[in-house]
């Protein structure tokens, strides 16, 4: 199946390992992607600054996907949230939609409200046969206990997100288990990574990130898996600094993007999955593969 791939700002300008690994596994799973020519920022960074500017940017990208006639696939939780909420508000406020379209017309665009939004978890779940995935793996992840971190915006607001149970999500747990690894409920599962408050108070945000890492290690998890560049930047990119500040002596917890983990199990090489960009040490994990 073919999707319009929306990358946002953070993934294609710095989190190359997410884009690389998704593009690497997609064809193996029957996922075809079309890059969205003309696309821009999703709008979410200016939500608190100028809410109409947010809606304009969100509608602009949704209009481009509508023109392609494809479902809009987002890899970033922030972008997904932007589109999900903007679509909902524009549906309920035709006067604002008209205003947004007046400005979109300057670029020859029009948003109709018909776009279908799909989260990367939903797409992976659609294209992976949970029961039989193990048969097509080069390395099954038997023996590893892996924690899913969904991230807030993959799940909430629950009244307008339909693909997942927001209070008891299982979709990522199922994908992890399909690779042969085990996963289990942990009380911190829905906790926020703290990324949004790094700009205001980084030490406070580090406490939130660090508390979850500490809990996961106490509960015996071997790795953490994310689907959002903001969450990954906290758990992977900042983990060393967080452990130093929190005086946590334990070795670092490996953190992967979900497509990287799937790619490892499918036997793709480290380079094509961008594993050289992960900041946490992953060599021991890779050596433990069957």
């Amino acid at each position: 199946m073919k999707y319009a791939l929306f990358l946002g700002c953070v993934i294609p300008t710095e989190q190359y390992q997410y884009e690389l690994s998704f593009r690497a596994i997609a064809p193996l799973l029957g996922i075809e992607v079309v890059d969205m020519d003309g696309s821009s920022c999703c709008g979410v960074p200016v939500k608190g600054y100028n809410v109409v500017g947010w809606l304009f940017l969100a509608a602009r990208n949704m209009a481009i996907a509508e023109n392609l006639g494809l479902d809009l696939l987002t890899l970033c939780n922030g972008c997904y949230n932007s589109f999900v909420e903007a679509k909902h508000y524009l549906e309920t406020k035709p006067d604002v939609m008209e205003k947004v379209n007046d400005s979109l017309a300057l670029e020859g665009l029009e948003y109709h409200g018909s776009v279908k939004l799909v989260h990367v978890l939903e797409v992976l779940r659609t294209h992976i046969d949970i029961e039989h995935m193990k048969d097509s793996l080069k390395h099954t992840l038997d023996g590893f206990k892996i924690a899913p971190h969904y991230g807030c915006h993959a799940l909430r607001p629950s009244d307008i997100i339909e693909y997942v149970d927001s209070e008891d999500p299982q979709i990522m747990d199922d994908l992890i288990k399909a690779l042969g690894a085990s996963s289990e409920y942990y009380p911190e599962k829905l906790d926020c990574c703290g990324s949004t408050i790094t700009g205001v108070d980084y030490e406070a945000s580090f406490k939130l990130t660090g508390a979850k890492i500490e809990a996961l290690q106490k509960r015996g998890f071997d790795a953490l898996v994310t689907v959002c560049p903001f969450c990954q930047k906290m758990y992977d990119g900042k983990q060393e600094a967080i452990k130093r500040i929190m005086k946590d002596q334990k070795p670092m917890l490996p953190v992967f993007y979900l497509p990287q983990l799937i790619g490892i199990a499918l036997g793709l090489d480290n380079e094509s999955l961008g594993l050289n960009f992960n900041a946490t040490p992953i060599d021991d994990f890779l050596r433990g593969l069957y």
Binding site: G38, S40, E107
Partner: peptide, 16 residues
Amino acid sequence: PAPKDMGAFVRAFRRI
């Protein structure tokens, strides 16, 4: 990817 006409994008964003 980037807007095909960056000038038009900026005008539209500024306007709204």
